[in-house]
């Protein structure tokens, strides 16, 4: 079987298009490349959607935590503490069994699938981590900027939208890029934590460990997975770098924030 037919058979296997049966004997490197790459679709799906939804939730949570009203501050603080203080792995397990219980009670049965349930957990999780980053940035906005906005008559929503929010994003963007990278990495946990992979439709790590089990040779699938993820990481850095450039456009070049890759936020 040539590599081209393999790609035709398995390139979209993780979303259920193509050949049903996974290769079991005489597994070629091409098959491993194709299937692990196909699984990456789910990692991108979870990562991108969780980032998008998590971003807005994080902005709200950060504002909540920064608020002077206890009724807004307390819930935000608790939410952030709950999701940052416990392992994501346990959150997945707990959420899955909670969704199962809900399903038994006849409520939201679709949440027991990984595509919806795990995504929800990831959204909350990344929102909590990002909110902490944004909160730190909110506290770091130069007082002068806000006072100048007041002097110009900005207030309420307009002040937030035009002054506070862009500054907050600019100051936190470096840390937020790291958060995005580690969120991408965290998506590999989904199918190892109770959420079932229906008809072997799994993510990249799911297929990598499948191959490692079948061939009993971890030295091929995991480096392939690593290569894919390094590529994904580079794409994330590139895209976030573009946004960073836009956020810093108005500043002289020596005052711009650079994206520094740091290892401060893994789950």
């Amino acid at each position: 079987m040539s590599c081209l037919t393999t790609i035709q058979d398995y390139a979209l296997r993780s979303i259920g298009i193509g050949k049903r049966i996974l290769p079991t004997t005489d597994i070629s490197v091409c098959e491993q490349f194709t299937l692990i790459g196909s699984g990456l679709i789910w990692n991108v799906y979870f990562g991108v959607l969780a980032l998008l939804a998590g971003f807005f939730l994080a902005c709200i949570l950060a504002l909540g935590k920064n608020s002077n009203t206890a009724a807004l501050r307390r819930p935000s603080e608790w939410f952030i503490f709950l999701f940052r203080g416990s392992p994501l792995f346990i959150q997945f397990f707990f959420a899955y069994f909670a969704f199962l219980a809900l399903k038994k009670a006849g409520l939201v049965p679709w949440l027991t699938s990984a595509q919806a349930g795990a995504l929800l957990v990831l959204v909350f999780n990344t929102a909590a981590y990002s909110a902490e980053i944004f909160y730190g940035a909110l506290r770091a906005i130069p007082k002068g900027d806000v006072e100048a906005a007041d002097a110009y008559g900005f207030s309420g929503w307009k002040k937030f939208r035009r002054i506070v929010w862009p500054s907050m994003l600019r100051l936190s963007w470096s840390a937020y890029t790291n958060e995005a990278i580690f969120l991408m990495h965290a998506t590999t946990l989904v199918f190892f934590s109770g959420f079932p992979a229906w008809q072997q439709k799994g993510d990249a790590l799911y297929y990598a460990s499948y191959f490692a089990d079948k061939t009993f040779n971890p030295f091929v699938p995991y480096p392939i997975l690593a290569a894919y993820f390094i590529l994904l990481t580079l794409v994330v850095i590139g895209l976030f770098g573009l946004v960073n450039r836009r956020l810093n456009k108005h500043l002289p070049s020596n005052q711009r924030q650079k994206i520094k890759l740091k290892l401060n936020l893994i789950r």
Partner: peptide
Amino acid sequence: VRGVPDIAFFLF
């Protein structure tokens, strides 16, 4: 460790 998920390392 920056580029690759830690779980992949564990399994590997």
